[in-house]
Amino acid sequence: MAKPALKEHRIERQWCKGCGICVHFCPKKVLEMDEEDKAFAARLEDCICCRMCELRCPDLAVEVICETSGNNETPDKDQGGGNA
């Protein structure tokens, strides 16, 4: 299966209330809080497009834009912190 590649990490700063849920549950520790307590993608290159930040955001502020590429990269073993 082709691995989805990250295109963009859109965070609506006006909507983000800085609860930190996205930072806490990101399996790859991509996100961090900035000095204004808003989430931002500090390590974009580590993102595996599991979208757990987007799905768990209570403020509907996070949007992960991915595109499925047909390159040769191996599928990631980590399933992205899905349901326990």
Partner: peptide, 21 residues
């Protein structure tokens, strides 16, 4: 009406998120 009135981290927003999906 956004940002909504719920407190930071309120689970109600996650339910709204799931409902819309």
């Amino acid at each position: 009406f956004f940002p909504h009135i719920w407190c930071p981290g309120c689970g109600h927003g996650i339910i709204l998120n799931g409902l819309l999906r």
